[in-house]
Structures are given as C-alpha cells and as structure tokens.
C-alpha cells in the first residue's frame, strides 16, 4: 500500500512562502454575536472571540485549551469561514483572506473535524458518498470522487469493501469519527482543525484515533489545530499550546514547557485541575472558585481577575498586554509585566 497512489482531487493549494512562513496567521481576530433576550430587550453582544493573535507554523500541531465559552470553537469556525469575522485578519500562507484569497480557496486549505461524530454525518448518505461529496462539488467527476473516497477509507483504517456502502448509524463512534477525518482529508487540506474530535470517544478508541492522526499527519504533511479540554491528550499531540479564557488568548508556549511551568495563573489553575492520578496525593484545594463568567458582559481589565487568586487592583482596571517570556512563550498577565504597576513585580 503506497501513499504515492496520489489522490487526485482538486489540487491542494501549493506552498507559497516556504517552511518559515506560518501557515495561518490571525491578527486581532474578533467575532461578536448579537443576542437578544426578547423582542424589546436591548441588543447585547457575545464577545466570543475578542481580538486574538496567533500563528500556526507549517507542520506543527497547535493545541488549544480553555473552558466553555472561551472561544476556542468559535476560533476554529472563524478559520474555516463558518461564522462571519467581525474584525481582524486571517492570513493563509502569506495570503490575506478576502484580499488575496477567496473563502472558497481558503476552505480548500483548511478543513475541520467536529466533535459530534453522529451530527456531523448525513444519516441518509453512505459514508463513501459523504467522503466523495467534497471532491464532487469541487468538480471531480463522480467515478473519480468515489475512487478517492475508497482510497481514503483504506487510509483511515476502514476496509472499503466492507464499509463503503454503510450508513452512519451502522458504525461505532470511533468508526464515524474516522469517516469525518476522511471527509476532511478528501479536500486535501494543509490545516486540519480537530474541534474536540476525540473527546466523545471512549478512551481505548480515542487512543486508536490519536495513532491514526499521527500517521495521517506524516503521510499527508498536515498541520493540526487540536482543540480539546483534556490536557493529557493535548500534551501528547501538541507542539505548542494556546490557552484561551473568555475570548482572549492568555498564554501561548511550547507544550512541554507549559506543562511543567505555567506563567499565567489561569493556565496554572487549568493544569492543577487535572486529576492527580495518585491516590496518595489527591487534590485537596479546588484550583479556582466558581464557573467561568458569561462572555456577554466580560469583566473589565484582565478578564480573569474575578477568579484569579493573585488579582490586585490593577488587574480589574487595566487590560494586560502580551509579554514575551522566552522564545515562543507569551503571556498576557500583569504579574509578568514590569510596566503594569502590579506591585509585586514593581517591588
């Protein structure tokens, strides 16, 4: 079985800027949703993603973590054009979306796997048809599209002879998620966004799919954006980690370094909320009090100050800026900003 039996869908976007140019650059990316409680209620705005900057280098895996409402899924949907951009830029391999690159072209380079393996497959289509759909709407003839689908089924570990004609409800959760991965790959993307793609799977099946993702990354030269709430999984798969809180990025850094030492108090809380795995050293103190606040009316200043154990007066008034600690490690916290007026640092 050779990977050189190339898949001849619409050719993937050719590399432009070389390996040094990030595959994705997001600048001040913003997404606000208007919401209304009732007809007469005043319009409010959910600040789902509020001015975030990040890059994803070619071939790397960027892990994105954060609690519900932190904007990680919205960020993913922004990158693939499923929600409208309120402000900011997305730059794909040096080309700016809507300026140098159409949304249609961007979607050939970026694909996504959703969390709910059942809801993301059309119950009336066989899995072969589902995978062939993307190439077909991009002009690949029916027979060829089906050949692509069968080849991909083989690559994702589902024997085409047995599975091609099956319907989603005839598959297990793990198999369905493999199909979703195959469907995304049929577009020959360079960036694959995995939005909690393994979270709903049983642990033993999750491990199989993670192995598959590793194989596919190598074979298809993929770049991953891996969104998950499970820090063990994120650590295993990611090169770099991006931590989000209420629509903002609070910390970005190399995964392994961040795993051992966290600069932002929120990142530290997230990591200490991981179960200890040692019955003799159980967690004794909850890492944080309360739930994450509502992104409709985010707290002023540093959005984390309402739950932060280290918050001082400056945190509620001044929005922290991103400080570079080491090469590739950035944190948005007054604690690390000598100019912020956070007393401990000033002293």
């Amino acid at each position: 079985m050779s990977a050189n039996k190339t898949i001849t869908t619409a050719p993937s976007l050719a590399d432009i800027g070389g390996p040094r140019q990030p595959l994705i650059t997001a600048k001040d990316l913003t997404c606000h949703f208007p919401v209304r409680a009732g007809i007469l209620a005043p319009k409010k705005v959910v600040r789902a993603v509020d001015g975030i900057d990040f890059t994803i280098a070619k071939g790397e895996t960027l892990g994105v973590v954060g609690e519900s409402g932190c904007g990680k899924s919205t960020t993913a949907r922004l990158l693939i054009g499923l929600v409208p951009i309120t402000g900011g830029k997305i730059i794909y391999d040096g080309q700016e979306l809507n300026a140098d690159l159409s949304l249609r072209d961007l979607r050939r380079g970026v694909q996504m796997v959703f969390q709910d393996s059942f809801a993301s497959l059309n119950p009336r289509m066989t899995i072969e048809e589902t995978i062939a759909f993307g190439p077909k709407v991009n002009g690949v003839p029916q027979a060829e599209a089906l050949a692509i689908a069968r080849d991909l089924l083989d690559r994702i570990g589902l024997d085409p002879a047995r599975f091609a004609g099956r319907y989603p409800h005839e598959l297990s959760g793990g198999q369905r998620q493999r199909v979703n991965i195959g469907r995304a790959l049929a577009m020959r993307p360079r960036l694959l966004i995995l939005d909690e793609a393994v979270s709903a799977l049983d642990k033993s099946v999750e491990a199989q799919v993670l192995n598959l993702l590793e194989d596919l990354r190598r074979d298809f030269d993929l770049t991953y954006m891996f969104i998950s709430h499970d820090l063990n999984v994120v650590r295993f798969i990611s090169d770099r980690l991006m931590v989000m809180y209420l629509g903002e990025v609070v910390e970005v850094g190399p995964a392994e370094a961040l795993y051992h030492k966290q600069a932002h108090p929120y990142t530290a809380a997230l990591f200490s909320a991981m179960p200890s795995m040692d019955p003799d050293a159980r967690t004794q103190v909850p890492p944080l009090a309360g739930d994450p606040p509502n992104p409709i009316d985010p707290p002023s200043g540093c959005r984390f100050h309402t739950r932060c154990p280290l918050a001082k007066s400056v945190c509620s008034s001044l929005k922290p800026r991103a400080i570079t600690l080491n090469e590739g490690h950035q944190v948005a916290c007054h604690l690390h900003d000598p100019a912020s007026g956070y007393e401990e640092v000033a002293a």
Partner: peptide, 17 residues
C-alpha cells in the same frame, strides 16, 4: 444547525447543492 451541513459548507458547496 447540524454539523454535517457546516461540513458541506466548509467543503465549498453552494447553498443549492
């Protein structure tokens, strides 16, 4: 609202399709 419609949009299909 289901994800498979989003997935179809993400593969570049037009609304009619």
């Amino acid at each position: 609202k289901l994800d498979y419609v989003d997935a179809a949009r993400a593969s570049g299909a037009g609304n009619f399709t």
